[in-house]
């Protein structure tokens, strides 16, 4: 890994992301804060550039913005539904649960997209991502209604993956 030569643009990209995080956390325009941020980001970028292989930049076109909004809306609806679902289960004195661990395979290749998908699944009704091994997602499902692979995929991942595939494609 470390034998790989790292291009200057890679350094700059890492620095940029790290500085963006710093700026998000301070949200101040005072010169002292900005300078401290730049210095610290340079140091952190220098140390972590070898391992920094997530969030590769993708080409953003106007249609992507529509997909981002679409994804956000799909996600928001699922999140609110998930909470009412949890609330229903928790308040019910009988605790109506039938848990199990199921798996499905994703078509996504991009690591960042996989992370987004895993996080979204965790926040949607009754499902919790336990592990991602290559293309396989292992999901703890609070109420297993089916063991058919296709139906599992349809039930859990399809609404998100459809949109993510449009943004990232199935290429790396």
């Amino acid at each position: 890994m470390s034998a790989k030569t790292i291009s200057p643009s890679r350094y700059f990209y890492t620095f940029f992301i790290v500085f963006l995080i710093w700026y998000a956390f301070t949200t101040s325009l005072q010169p002292a804060e900005i300078i401290t941020g730049i210095v610290l980001s340079l140091v952190v970028a220098y140390i972590t550039v070898v391992n920094f292989d997530c969030c590769d930049p993708i080409l953003i076109t106007p249609s992507h913005i529509i997909y981002f909004i679409q994804y956000f809306l799909v996600f928001l609806v699922a999140l609110v539904k998930a909470n009412f679902d949890v609330a229903k289960r928790v308040i019910n004195p009988k605790l109506p649960i039938n848990p199990g661990i199921v798996s499905f395979e994703t078509k996504l290749k991009n690591n960042f997209a996989k992370m987004v998908l895993a996080n979204s699944i965790t926040l949607t009704p009754g499902t919790l991502t336990i592990d991602v091994v290559d293309d396989k997602f292992y999901i703890h499902w609070i109420d297993v209604t089916t063991e058919n692979k296709d139906e599992i995929y349809k039930e859990i991942a399809e609404p998100f993956e459809k949109v993510l595939l449009k943004i990232y494609g199935s290429s790396k």
Binding site: V80, A87, V90, P99, G126, I130, H140
Partner: peptide, 17 residues
């Protein structure tokens, strides 16, 4: 909730939102 995973389910979703 009766076990760890179900606790995570309830805890994560509800406390996040």
């Amino acid at each position: 909730m009766p076990d760890l995973y179900n606790r995570l389910q309830a805890g994560t979703k509800a406390s996040t939102l």
